[in-house]
């Protein structure tokens, strides 16, 4: 699928995500909007996955370590055919399988349960190591938040990935510069990520993570080391009043804001 088509799908996913946040009265809209372009590129271009055979051994793995943006993953999985599109409207409803954080035993396409931060990358290292041990040629992708990188478990895994020579592993850091309570810079500023990852023995690519033309080649890049994509993104990307502010980590738009946001996302069509 070409860049233009991917951009169109990303707009549709943003639209549905926004609608679902308002319907459910909850969600993590800022981090969902920042991540959706990358999720779209993964599921509609890069990942070798088969929605009707979600556990087929040769599938590529994707782990959403920033599990609080589960809704963006659900909308993407639905659009890709893993779950019915109409099921998105059950998000957060009693007994819905669409929890606030993804569950691999309930939702096809989810690889491991995430939610507490700093869990996805170690599991992804295990997946990539398993491929090395078995000779499987699947590739493992994992997406973390930038604030999430404050969890020490990530650095245990980063070190192990280099030690194990996991050139079949790609870490995407959704670097939207804001965490729940404040900016990354004002909290525990791990940026810049590039020199830190390089010091641990990784290859690092910096991209605009909301620009499809940069996302796709970075995801498809292969080298001799574990690969980190530092994806510079905007929290709330696509909705003007949500950008560059800490306010929209998990706030829900009111009706007026919803109309404005819908209008902006539609204009982009």
């Amino acid at each position: 699928m070409q860049t233009n088509d991917l951009e169109g799908i990303a707009r549709q996913i943003r639209h549905r995500d926004l609608q679902a946040v308002v319907e459910a009265g909850a969600g993590h809209i800022g981090g969902e909007m920042s991540a959706i372009d990358i999720l779209t590129a993964l599921y509609f271009r890069v990942l070798r996955v088969w929605p009707d055979q979600p556990r087929i051994p040769q599938r590529d793995r994707f782990v959403l370590s920033k599990g609080h943006v589960a809704l963006a993953l659900y909308v993407t999985l639905a659009k890709r055919g893993f779950i019915p599109e109409e099921e998105v409207s059950t998000f957060l409803k009693p007994h819905s399988r669409l929890n606030g954080h993804p569950n691999c035993n309930k939702v096809p396409g989810v690889e491991t349960n995430t939610g507490p931060l700093g869990h996805g990358l170690p599991v992804a290292v295990g997946m990539a190591k398993a491929a090395k041990l078995t000779g499987a040629d699947y590739h493992t992708y994992v997406m973390t938040g930038d604030g999430e990188m404050q969890e020490g478990s990530n650095w245990e895994a980063i070190s192990a990935a280099a030690q194990f020579g996991l050139d079949n592993l790609t870490l995407i850091i959704d670097h939207n510069r804001f965490q729940q309570g404040a900016s990354l810079k004002d909290t525990n500023n791990l940026a810049p990520f590039k020199p830190k990852l390089e010091a641990f023995g990784w290859d690092v690519t910096e991209i605009n993570g909301n620009t499809m033309a940069e996302i796709v080649p970075a995801l498809e890049r292969r080298g001799g080391k574990p690969h980190c994509i530092v994806a510079h993104t905007n929290k709330g990307h696509g909705i003007s009043f949500m950008q560059d502010t800490v306010d929209w980590h998990h706030k829900v738009p009111n009706q007026d804001q919803y109309k404005i946001a819908l209008g902006e996302l539609s204009e982009a069509n």
Binding site: V123, G126, A130
Partner: peptide, 22 residues
Amino acid sequence: VNVGIAEQNLVGVGAGLANGGL
């Protein structure tokens, strides 16, 4: 598979290895 002195990674890697069929 020796992950070094890193128990959080130890258990996470275990889960990933199982996901990969081991």
